[in-house]
Amino acid sequence: KELVLVLYDYQEKSPREVTVKKGDILTLLNSTNKDWWKVEVDDRQGFIPAAYLKKL
């Protein structure tokens, strides 16, 4: 499984997104879309802008 580091706080703006904090380490589920990556946060799955994440 691939992990990503959150570079900036992000507040979800729709039900398909998730809220994260800078410094969080998340499981990356899908990065095929270059703009929005799907991650897992506390048993929730959702999207975050790829620019907010860095692969570890």
Score class of each variant (00 low, 15 high):
Lys1Glu: 09
Lys1Asn: 12
Lys1Asp: 11
Lys1Thr: 11
Lys1Trp: 12
Lys1Leu: 15
Lys1Ile: 13
Lys1Phe: 15
Glu2Ile: 12
Glu2His: 11
Glu2Gly: 10
Glu2Met: 11
Glu2Trp: 10
Glu2Thr: 12
Leu3Pro: 04
Leu3Met: 12
Leu3Tyr: 15
Leu3Ile: 08
Val4Ile: 05
Val4Pro: 00
Val4Thr: 03
Val4Asp: 00
Val4Glu: 00
Val4Cys: 11
Val4Tyr: 06
Val4Leu: 04
Leu5Ala: 05
Leu5Met: 10
Leu5Lys: 06
Leu5Phe: 07
Leu5His: 04
Leu5Tyr: 10
Val6Arg: 00
Val6Pro: 00
Val6Asn: 00
Val6Gln: 00
Val6Ser: 02
Val6Gly: 01
Val6His: 00
Leu7Asp: 01
Leu7Met: 08
Leu7Gly: 01
Leu7Arg: 05
Leu7Tyr: 02
Leu7His: 02
Leu7Cys: 07
Tyr8Ala: 14
Tyr8Glu: 13
Tyr8Asn: 13
Tyr8Leu: 13
Tyr8Asp: 10
Tyr8Ser: 11
Tyr8Lys: 15
Tyr8Thr: 08
Asp9Leu: 02
Asp9Pro: 07
Asp9Met: 03
Asp9Thr: 05
Asp9Ile: 01
Asp9Arg: 02
Asp9His: 06
Tyr10Ala: 00
Tyr10Gln: 01
Tyr10Met: 01
Tyr10Pro: 01
Tyr10Trp: 08
Tyr10Phe: 06
Gln11Ile: 15
Gln11Ser: 12
Gln11Cys: 12
Gln11Trp: 15
Gln11Asn: 14
Gln11His: 14
Gln11Tyr: 15
Gln11Pro: 06
Glu12Thr: 09
Glu12Ile: 09
Glu12Ser: 15
Glu12Cys: 13
Glu12His: 10
Glu12Met: 14
Glu12Asn: 06
Glu12Val: 07
Glu12Gly: 14
Lys13Thr: 11
Lys13Val: 08
Lys13Cys: 10
Lys13Met: 13
Lys13Asp: 06
Lys13Gln: 13
Lys13Trp: 05
Ser14Phe: 07
Ser14Met: 08
Ser14Pro: 06
Ser14Asp: 13
Ser14Leu: 08
Ser14Cys: 09
Ser14Ile: 04
Ser14Gln: 08
Ser14Asn: 12
Ser14His: 15
Pro15Gly: 09
Pro15Gln: 11
Pro15Met: 08
Pro15Val: 09
Arg16Tyr: 14
Arg16Lys: 13
Arg16Ile: 13
Arg16Cys: 15
Arg16Thr: 15
Arg16His: 14
Arg16Gly: 15
Arg16Ala: 14
Glu17Gln: 11
Glu17Leu: 04
Glu17Val: 04
Glu17Ile: 03
Glu17Ala: 06
Glu17Tyr: 04
Glu17Thr: 07
Glu17Phe: 05
Glu17Ser: 06
Val18Gly: 02
Val18Glu: 02
Val18Phe: 08
Val18Lys: 02
Val18Arg: 02
Val18Gln: 02
Val18Pro: 02
Thr19Pro: 03
Thr19Arg: 04
Thr19Trp: 03
Thr19Ile: 03
Thr19Ala: 05
Thr19Cys: 05
Thr19Phe: 03
Thr19Val: 04
Val20Trp: 04
Val20Cys: 09
Val20Leu: 03
Val20Phe: 03
Val20Ile: 05
Lys21Cys: 11
Lys21Leu: 07
Lys21Arg: 14
Lys22Ala: 14
Lys22Thr: 06
Lys22Trp: 03
Lys22Asp: 02
Lys22Met: 08
Gly23Pro: 00
Gly23Lys: 02
Gly23Arg: 02
Gly23Cys: 08
Asp24Cys: 08
Asp24Lys: 07
Asp24Gly: 05
Asp24Ile: 06
Ile25Thr: 05
Ile25Ser: 02
Ile25Asn: 02
Ile25Pro: 00
Ile25Trp: 04
Leu26Ser: 01
Leu26Trp: 06
Leu26Pro: 01
Leu26His: 11
Leu26Phe: 04
Thr27Met: 12
Thr27His: 14
Thr27Ser: 10
Thr27Lys: 14
Thr27Val: 15
Thr27Asn: 10
Leu28Met: 04
Leu28Asp: 00
Leu28Ala: 03
Leu28Gly: 01
Leu28Cys: 11
Leu28His: 01
Leu28Thr: 01
Leu29Tyr: 03
Leu29Ile: 14
Leu29Thr: 06
Leu29Gln: 03
Leu29Gly: 02
Leu29Cys: 07
Leu29Asn: 02
Asn30Phe: 06
Asn30Tyr: 06
Asn30Ala: 09
Asn30Val: 08
Asn30Arg: 06
Ser31Arg: 07
Ser31Trp: 09
Ser31Ala: 13
Ser31Thr: 09
Ser31Ile: 06
Ser31Lys: 07
Ser31Phe: 06
Thr32His: 13
Thr32Trp: 08
Thr32Arg: 10
Thr32Met: 13
Thr32Val: 11
Thr32Ala: 13
Thr32Lys: 12
Thr32Gln: 12
Asn33Gly: 09
Asn33Val: 06
Asn33Leu: 09
Asn33Glu: 09
Asn33Gln: 10
Asn33Lys: 07
Lys34Asp: 11
Lys34Arg: 12
Lys34His: 13
Lys34Ser: 11
Lys34Tyr: 08
Asp35Pro: 02
Asp35Ala: 12
Asp35Leu: 12
Asp35Glu: 15
Asp35Met: 13
Asp35Tyr: 15
Asp35Lys: 11
Trp36Pro: 00
Trp36Glu: 06
Trp36Gln: 04
Trp36Asn: 03
Trp36Ser: 04
Trp36Lys: 03
Trp36Asp: 02
Trp37Cys: 03
Trp37Thr: 02
Trp37Lys: 01
Trp37Pro: 01
Lys38Gly: 06
Lys38Thr: 08
Lys38Trp: 13
Lys38Asn: 06
Lys38Glu: 15
Lys38His: 12
Lys38Gln: 14
Lys38Cys: 13
Lys38Leu: 15
Lys38Met: 15
Lys38Val: 12
Lys38Ile: 15
Lys38Ser: 10
Val39Cys: 08
Val39Glu: 00
Val39Pro: 00
Val39Thr: 01
Val39Met: 01
Glu40Gly: 08
Glu40Asn: 06
Glu40Ala: 10
Glu40Ile: 10
Glu40Ser: 09
Val41Leu: 10
Val41Gly: 07
Val41Asp: 07
Val41Lys: 15
Val41Met: 09
Val41Thr: 12
Val41Asn: 10
Asp42Cys: 12
Asp42Phe: 14
Asp42Ile: 11
Asp42Asn: 14
Asp42Tyr: 09
Asp42Ala: 15
Asp43Cys: 14
Asp43Met: 09
Asp43Arg: 10
Asp43Gln: 15
Arg44Ile: 08
Arg44Pro: 00
Arg44Gln: 07
Arg44Ser: 06
Gln45Lys: 14
Gln45Thr: 13
Gln45Ser: 14
Gln45Asn: 09
Gln45Val: 13
Gln45His: 10
Gly46Val: 14
Gly46Asp: 02
Gly46Glu: 05
Gly46Ala: 07
Phe47Asn: 04
Phe47Val: 07
Phe47Pro: 00
Phe47Gln: 03
Phe47Lys: 02
Phe47Asp: 05
Phe47Ala: 02
Phe47Tyr: 15
Ile48Lys: 00
Ile48Asn: 01
Ile48Phe: 02
Pro49Cys: 05
Pro49Lys: 04
Pro49Thr: 01
Pro49Met: 03
Pro49Arg: 05
Pro49Glu: 04
Ala50Gln: 06
Ala50Thr: 06
Ala50Asp: 02
Ala50Trp: 02
Ala50His: 04
Ala50Met: 05
Ala51Lys: 14
Ala51Glu: 13
Ala51Trp: 13
Ala51Asp: 12
Tyr52Glu: 02
Tyr52Met: 10
Tyr52Pro: 01
Tyr52Ser: 09
Tyr52Ala: 14
Tyr52Cys: 13
Tyr52Asp: 04
Tyr52Arg: 05
Leu53Trp: 00
Leu53Gly: 06
Leu53Lys: 00
Leu53Ser: 04
Leu53Glu: 00
Lys54Val: 14
Lys54Tyr: 11
Lys54Cys: 15
Lys54Thr: 12
Lys54Asp: 07
Lys54Ile: 13
Lys54Phe: 10
Lys54His: 12
Lys55Thr: 08
Lys55Gly: 05
Lys55Cys: 10
Lys55Phe: 08
Lys55Tyr: 09
Leu56Phe: 09
Leu56Gln: 06
Leu56Asn: 03
Leu56Cys: 10
Leu56Tyr: 08
Leu56Ala: 04
Leu56Thr: 06
Leu56Asp: 03
Leu56His: 05
